[in-house]
């Protein structure tokens, strides 16, 4: 299932070379969707949640426990997490996998499973937290 260009010479030239990579369009699709979210949404999200909020520059009640819960544990909150956590995670996984290949770290077949596997697990955790919050 490796991309031809990413096969290491030691992997045998003829065996792996002509395998069709059925899953690659999925990873590239998630990568670009995540890239759009990273570029359009994340600057504002990081600015408000990770800079202004901890510095106390937001009006005090805007992200109080009650307000934050009602915003996050809702259907829009679920979509927000999908766009701001899950898709960027797959974008990051893809870039990390290819970056590791670029600097010859590890083995691509394993990196691929580790990276996309972690992205999938963390995405499930994030969406699970929202669902748990909606049910509680």
């Amino acid at each position: 299932m490796n991309k031809i260009a990413m096969n290491k010479p030691s992997m045998g030239q003829n065996s792996a070379q002509h395998k069709q990579a059925f899953d690659e369009p999925l990873w590239w699709g998630l990568f670009s969707a995540g890239g759009v979210c990273f570029a359009i949404l994340l600057p504002a999200v990081i600015l408000f949640i990770a800079v202004l909020l901890p510095l106390g520059l937001l009006p005090a009640e805007e992200l109080s426990y009650e307000r934050a819960s009602s915003l996050l544990f809702s259907v829009p909150g679920f979509l927000f997490v999908g766009a701001v956590v899950c898709l960027p995670l797959f974008h990051a996984a893809h870039r990390l996998r290819h970056g590791m290949f670029d600097i010859s770290v590890g083995n691509d077949a394993l990196n691929k499973k580790l990276m996309y596997g972690s992205a999938a697990l963390l995405s499930l955790l994030a969406l699970g937290v929202v669902v748990a919050g909606m049910l509680s």
Binding site: I49, L72, V84, A92, L122, A126, V129, S136
Partner: peptide
């Protein structure tokens, strides 16, 4: 790093 922080925040909120 930010995403992991955000995840921790979501768990904390829960």
């Amino acid at each position: 790093f930010f995403t992991l922080c955000l995840l921790a925040g979501m768990v904390a909120l829960l």
